Amino acid sequence: MRPQPLAACLALAVLLPFGVAVQAAPAPAPAVPAVPAAAPAAAPAAPAAPAALTGQFDNGRVLAYTCQGCHGITGYKNAYPSYRVPKIGGQTQQYLSQALSEYRTGKRRHPTMQAQSMSFSEQEIADLAVYLSTVK
């Protein structure tokens, strides 16, 4: 079991009652290499697309342990605010990856999910998506 998700939940439980806002840190801008001014006029090279991450099922199964506390309970409502927690088992890999990434960047706003998603790397998000897409 990883300590980061638990620590993030505890921090939320302690800070939110006191009105402390939790926001995702903006992602740093990628460094752009300088182009020399005397470069010959050649066709611009297409930027290399980032390699798609391949999720690992077994690692995703271990990581999903923290998800089951809310998403694994039928009809569960969490306290902030009273919100019915959706079932995530069986969703598509693309949807799960996109949702966690959007919580991580702040495009989707829910303090608990933002804290959880910020504790995962991109590889771990891919691992979770692979595993959770197979759960019924």
Rank of each mutant, 00 (worst) to 15 (best):
T92A: 10
A31D: 12
P36G: 08
Q98K: 13
I125W: 02
C67P: 04
V32K: 12
A31S: 12
T134R: 13
S82Q: 15
P17L: 01
A49Y: 09
P17H: 03
A37S: 13
L63S: 03
S117I: 07
K77N: 12
A43K: 12
F57Y: 15
G75Q: 03
A8I: 00
S121P: 11
R109S: 13
G75L: 05
M113K: 06
T66W: 11
P26W: 03
A34G: 03
S82N: 15
Q98N: 14
A27W: 07
S117M: 03
S82W: 12
L132G: 01
A29V: 15
Q4D: 14
A42L: 14
L12P: 00
V135C: 03
P17K: 08
L100W: 00
L6Q: 12
Y76V: 03
Y95K: 07
C9L: 14
A21C: 05
K136M: 10
I125A: 06
A115V: 06
M1S: 14
K107R: 09
A43T: 13
A11E: 08
S97W: 00
A39Y: 08
T54L: 10
C70R: 01
T105I: 04
M113D: 07
A21D: 14
R61M: 11
A41K: 14
L128C: 06
S119D: 02
L6N: 13
C67E: 01
P26A: 10
A24F: 02
P81A: 09
T105V: 09
S119M: 07
V85Q: 02
R104A: 02
S97Y: 04
S97E: 10
A21W: 11
Q4S: 15
L128S: 00
I125Y: 00
T54C: 00
L63V: 05
T54D: 12
P26Q: 12
T112D: 08
L132Q: 03
A8S: 11
A79R: 13
P86L: 10
L15H: 05
Q4M: 14
A52L: 08
A99K: 02
P44K: 05
A79H: 11
K107A: 07
N78E: 13
P44I: 00
P17R: 06
K87L: 11
V62D: 06
F57N: 10
C9M: 15
A126Q: 07
S119V: 04
A8F: 06
T54G: 08
G19W: 02
C67L: 05
T54Y: 02
R61P: 03
S117K: 07
S97I: 04
A41S: 13
T112C: 09
Q91H: 12
E124A: 05
R84C: 05
P36S: 08
T66D: 12
L6M: 15
V20A: 12
L63N: 04
A46D: 05
K136Q: 14
P47D: 06
Y80I: 15
A43H: 09
A29L: 13
S119Q: 06
I73A: 06
E102R: 09
A52E: 11
H71N: 06
K107N: 09
E122K: 13
L63P: 01
H71Q: 06
P44Y: 04
S133V: 02
R2E: 15
L100P: 00
A45I: 09
K107Y: 04
V62S: 07
A21N: 11
A29D: 11
Q98V: 02
S121F: 05
C9P: 00
A45C: 04
G72D: 03
P30G: 01
F18H: 11
Q116L: 15
M113C: 11
L10W: 05
A64W: 01
